[in-house]
């Protein structure tokens, strides 16, 4: 318990200080390795889960194709092909082989085009990544802009600004997308719908995708800024003669932004899902169009790869957040909640 810690005024803080200094070396390394191991495990589990779900779904595309009377395969041929793909094996054997191939980077072959899945994905992933990352940038910039405005603009402007996040959240991103196309492509002619991969088109697609995401970030940021501004330290800083804007930049922004890091990680799902819709509206080739084609043709290896890709994206983003957070927030205690010692105060009674 906390109160047993040695309590000479001088020695006690020393112990804590050295612990603070050690934070970046060994406990952090242990923590990072644990997180990486967890991430790898999650990806593997996601792979197995997708594989099993697909395998229990009715309608095996190989059999569908082979048994199709138009194709005229003999039973013997069917058996040979099924054996070739290993489909006569028990599920766990198939899983094991599929998993071993996955670990060596082999995602299988598309049933529709006979091209390696990794090549199919490689061709389109760049476009989706560009869209998602630009949307994230748009979202973050917009969110911080709104949050800055609510605290630093005069009240008649700041108050309506607070309504923006809920407004953004309540409009679906395909509506925003259609509006943007209508205004900026058809009426103002700022970009060509035909040239859907051009920088201007990409920018507006990113805006359409980023606006709802920015709403979530802005809401958290505004709430946190309000909370931090009410803390005693804000008053103490003001009493030291800091101006409003210095208080914002030097004191309120960092503690308020820390939870935003977590929110950003949570919006990755939204970005991925939204990307598929936005790509369709803006006519971009990307993961969205690939998924659409694969679903209609039951191209299972491609679907499996896309699902695993989504899982990997999630895991990697969350891993980065987990690894970065302790470096940003000095209060995070890496030694785990169970072993945690409450910060001992010389003063607080009992």
């Amino acid at each position: 318990m906390a109160q047993t810690r040695s309590s000479t005024t001088v020695r006690k803080p020393d112990a804590r200080l050295t612990r603070g200094a050690r934070r970046t070396s060994s406990p952090y390394l242990v923590y990072a390795l644990q997180r990486v191991a967890q991430a790898v495990a999650v990806v593997l589990l996601a792979y197995c889960f997708t594989f099993l779900v697909i395998s229990v779904l009715p309608g095996d595309p190989v059999t569908n194709t082979l048994r199709n009377p138009e194709n005229n395969f003999t039973e013997e041929e069917i058996a040979r092909i099924v054996a070739y793909y290993g489909l006569d094996q028990p599920v766990h054997v198939q899983l094991w082989e599929s998993l071993s191939r996955f670990l060596t980077g082999d995602l299988g072959v598309s049933l529709r085009s006979n091209l390696p899945v990794s090549r199919l994905i490689g061709e389109i992933i760049g476009s989706t990544l560009v869209l998602a990352v630009s949307a994230l940038v748009v979202a973050v910039v917009l969110a911080f802009g709104i949050a800055y405005g609510t605290r630093n603009l005069p009240a008649p402007l700041a108050r309506p600004l607070r309504a923006f996040p809920s407004l953004f959240l309540s409009v679906p991103n395909f509506v925003i997308g259609l509006l943007l196309i209508n205004i900026f492509a058809f009426q103002l002619g700022l970009f060509q719908v035909i040239d859907s991969e051009g920088p201007a088109a990409t920018f507006f697609a990113a805006v359409a995708l980023g606006i709802p995401v920015s709403a979530q970030i802005a809401e958290v940021l505004i709430a946190n800024l309000d909370h931090e501004a009410r803390q005693e330290y804000a008053g103490f800083a003001t009493s030291r003669g800091l101006s409003r804007s210095r208080l914002f930049w030097r004191h309120l922004l960092k503690p308020s932004s820390l939870p935003v890091v977590t929110v950003v990680a949570l919006t990755v799902g939204e970005l991925l899902g939204g990307a598929l819709i936005t790509e369709t509206i803006f006519g971009r080739t990307g993961v969205g169009s690939l998924v659409q084609r694969s679903v209609t043709t039951q191209d299972l290896p491609v679907l499996q790869a896309v699902v695993v890709l989504a899982a990997i994206t999630f895991v990697v983003v969350n891993l980065v957040v987990d690894l970065v957070y302790p470096l940003l927030d000095p209060r995070v205690d890496l030694r785990g909640a169970t072993k945690r010692v409450r910060p001992v105060t010389e003063g607080a009674s009992a």
Partner: peptide, 18 residues
């Protein structure tokens, strides 16, 4: 600060934690 200084009540909440 220069003319009017302030010592707040709760030492653990009166400095920016980060």
């Amino acid at each position: 600060g220069r003319t009017v200084g302030f010592v707040p009540q709760d030492p653990s909440a009166s400095l920016n934690p980060v």
